[in-house]
Structure formats: C-alpha cells, structure tokens
Amino acid sequence: MDADLDVACHLNVLAPGVSSARLPAALDTIAAAGYRRVVLPPLNPDAIDAAALRELFRVRGLTPITIAGQAPDADVSSPSGDVRAAGAALLRRALDLTVALGADQMNGVPYGVFGHPAGLTDGAAFERSAAEVGRVADESHDRGVLMTFEVLNRYETSVVNTAAQAMEYVSASGSEHLWIHLDTFHMAVEETDASVAIRTALPRLGYLELGQSGRGALSAGAVDIGGIVRQALDDGYGGRWGVEAFSRSTLDAAAADMLAIWRRPFDDGVALAVDAARTIDTGWAASNVGRRVGTTDQ
C-alpha cells in the first residue's frame, strides 16, 4: 500500500477466526499488503490465549481491533436494570480483552442486540443505551482504547442507521470519548450521499470502513470506493480506515448465516486484500493529500 494511511483489514477476508490454522498465513498477507491493523471477529475471552495471540500480532507489526457486542440477556438498551448492568459488564469484559491483546481500538455494536431490528425505536431505549455506552467509552479512553460504535443498516438494527442519528447518539451519551464507525456498505443502503454522511459525522468519526455493495472486491460494485476515499481525505478526515469483505469461502457457516452471506463473492482472500489496498491507493493518489505527496516525491 502506497497511501500513508492507517488501514485495517478484517481477518475474515482471509480466515474464519483466530483458532484457524490459516491465521499465521493470513496475518502475514495482511502485513505484507501494507495494512497496519487487523480487525478480529467477536471473541470469547474464555476460549483464547490472549498472550499468544498478542505475540502473533506483535511480531508482524500489526495492531488488532476487537469487536464488542450485546446479547438478549445483556443489553444496555433494556428497561431492566439487571439486563442493562449485564450489558455494560459484557462491554467491560470486551474492553479487558482488548487491552490484553495489545489493541487500542474496540469497534462493534455496543448499543443493542445485533440482528434485532425491532424494539429500539423509542427515545427512552435510545437514551438508556447511549448513557451506558458513554460510560464505557470514558473508561476505554482512560485505558488507552478508542471505542467506536458501528452504524448499521435497517435490516441489522433499528437503533442507529445514519450518520445524523449517530451524531445524536454521541450527544446522548454525554461522553467526549465515544466515536463513530461508518461503513460504506451500510451507507449504500441508508444514506443519500456517502460523502455528505461522512462530513456529517466528521467531528466524531473515528473509523471509516470500506465495504463493497456485494461484500466482495472493493474495486467492483455499486460503491465508488476510490472516490469516497478521495473525497473523505479532501474533506479533512484523518482517522483510521478499514477494509471489510465477507464470503462463505472464508467464513464458518454460523457466522455466514448470521451476516446473511449466502454466496461466495470471492474465493481468494489474498487477491481481495491486495485489490483493496490498490483501490485505496487510487483514491489517496487522487486526493489533495496524495497529490501533494506525489509532487514532493518527483
């Protein structure tokens, strides 16, 4: 990757999880392609050796990004105080694992249950969720971890679907340390204009993830990834970036079903990771930042 950007690649592009025999080769590919970070799928802290994983990342110069979530009996948006407390505890457990892995960023869907589209459209649930997540975000900041929440499309949540709603959620959280995670895949469903959405979230945008409409190669699909990269840079975005793609060729069946990945948009994760880096380079080179660097190098 030629672009001087802090970019992460999702592990599922190349391997189904951290217990896969393909993990070392996948990490080698991600590092060789110029990525600085690797996004991990949701992890069970009791089922992994955090110290061993941390060393795998360290020797390759990669920093992991973890994912936090909720469950029906552990949900920060619940009207039940006990269920909310369990939801907050689940987020703090994910934070502990994040620190143990040597990570400094925790993404995910901390505001409610993934795949539970109904029931969180009332203002009280929104406020309850934001208040709990805001407290964990402050604790994350104190421990050196940037906490983000991902804005999902309407088929995956009813809580936060747009950049404007994300800004409202940040405000409701009361935290100065909660950051927004936008994903071009979800923006293609919910936003009229992805670049306008990015500008809307820019004051609190901590992670901009690049995903194609069909979940495959970034260079082919309905989303102009290179154009989005260029415009975001020109609009002043200076945060971290991510690459995400999913295929039944690399996911295990349970994860593929949960994410509604019924096809094989790609079979070669190595080629996808390299193609994504090249697509990002194209957008970066066309941006004002990239052009200035190119002029300096001549």
Rank of each mutant, 00 (worst) to 15 (best):
V113A: 02
E132W: 11
A286I: 03
T98G: 04
V170Q: 13
Y207N: 12
G87D: 10
A71I: 11
S219E: 15
S158Q: 13
R248W: 13
A217H: 15
V39M: 09
E190K: 00
F185I: 01
G239K: 01
Q105K: 09
N153M: 01
G221C: 02
R60T: 07
A194G: 06
V76T: 14
N161C: 08
G17V: 02
D235T: 09
A253G: 02
V243M: 07
F185L: 03
V159L: 13
P42L: 03
G226Q: 12
G115C: 08
L11I: 04
L146D: 07
A285K: 09
M106Y: 08
R143I: 00
A131C: 07
A74H: 04
G112E: 14
A131Y: 10
P72D: 08
A286H: 10
S171N: 12
A285H: 11
A201R: 01
V13K: 04
R230M: 13
R36K: 11
G211E: 01
R263P: 04
R204N: 09
P45C: 06
G61M: 06
N288W: 11
R54K: 14
G206P: 10
E244K: 08
A197H: 13
A172Y: 00
V18P: 02
S80V: 03
V229S: 08
I198S: 12
R248F: 06
F114N: 06
D96T: 09
L120H: 15
R264D: 13
D267H: 15
G238R: 13
L14E: 15
